[in-house]
């Protein structure tokens, strides 16, 4: 028989599914800023932030909310093969499949983009852009210069990637949106809303401020880390529920299990 905690655990599986999106004050602000940016006459928009700060889910939400209103395209996974990337761009720009055994002539593609300037306004959302090669980035830059295609580029914030951003985009990016880890209140809202969204009212009520403080302290407010921690917590709950019910107090959230999850994920050093 499946434990009651299996479903709770699954709430915290890290995903960028738009249905899992949690409206937080900070993320709403970032969304509005991003939406306003794509409305502007910008060639490139850089979405910047450490892993787990919600860049992918923000792009995904932007895509799903506007895909029917705008000429919007989302590259969730980086296409590292240059030919494949050009072929996909070709399809987006010309709305035609590339004939088999044919290569895209990049300069012709750029010319074509120039020729349709003002007729179409294509927006391409590129997630995990740090994985694109230098040459591909250069192509993106040239395509953006035609002003027919607008790129929203999502990058992890690390020192090296700061350099990439500088090198490729600095002169062309007109807007940078930076995402940060959540505050204590953000994490509280995030955890509670996640549970409430799936109707785990009792559990949401059992997680008190002191537990949130500990979760925040261990994860430093990173949403991905918070998901990992809560997943592990409810995985332990699931284990006890199936094997030793005497070890769980069903009316109280266990600090012990929280700490055990912290130890398991090496947030706590023993």
């Amino acid at each position: 028989m499946e434990s009651r905690y299996t479903a709770v655990k699954n709430v915290f599986i890290d995903s960028i599914d738009v249905d899992d999106y949690i409206n937080l004050e900070s993320s709403m602000k970032a969304y509005d800023q991003l939406f306003q940016s794509i409305e502007k006459e910008l060639k490139m928009i850089l979405l910047f932030g450490r892993p787990g700060t919600g860049k992918s889910i923000l792009l995904n939400r932007l895509y799903h909310r506007n895909k029917y209103q705008k000429d919007l395209h989302y590259f969730a996974t980086p296409i590292t093969n240059e030919k494949e990337f050009l072929s996909k761009l070709f399809k987006i720009i010309t709305k035609k499949d590339l004939p088999q055994n044919t290569l895209v002539n990049f300069s012709t593609l750029v010319d074509y983009c120039r020729s349709i300037r003002g007729e179409r306004e294509i927006i391409i959302l590129l997630d995990e852009a740090q994985m694109y090669s230098k040459d591909t980035m250069e192509m993106i830059r040239l395509l953006a210069d035609t002003r027919t295609i607008k790129f929203v580029v999502s990058l992890h914030k690390t020192e090296d990637e700061d350099l990439i951003a500088k090198e490729h985009f600095q002169s062309r990016i007109w807007e940078v949106i930076e995402l940060h880890n959540g505050s204590l209140d953000d994490i509280q809202t995030y955890v509670h809303k996640k549970l409430l969204k799936k109707n785990f009212f009792e559990l949401a009520n059992m997680i008190k401020k002191r537990h949130i403080k500990m979760i925040y302290r261990l994860t430093k407010g990173n949403y991905r880390e918070a998901n990992k921690l809560l997943f592990t917590i409810f995985e332990l709950y699931e284990h006890y529920d199936s094997n030793d019910k005497s070890k769980i107090n069903y009316s109280k959230f266990s600090t012990k299990i929280l700490e055990m999850a912290g130890i398991k994920l090496r947030y706590i050093d023993v």
């Binding site: 700490e259 398991k264 023993v270």
Partner: peptide, 18 residues
Amino acid sequence: MYDVDDLENRWKIYRSRK
């Protein structure tokens, strides 16, 4: 599932140190 007993033991050590 990982070794919960071992995890419990590590938690006990952590708790006693605290």
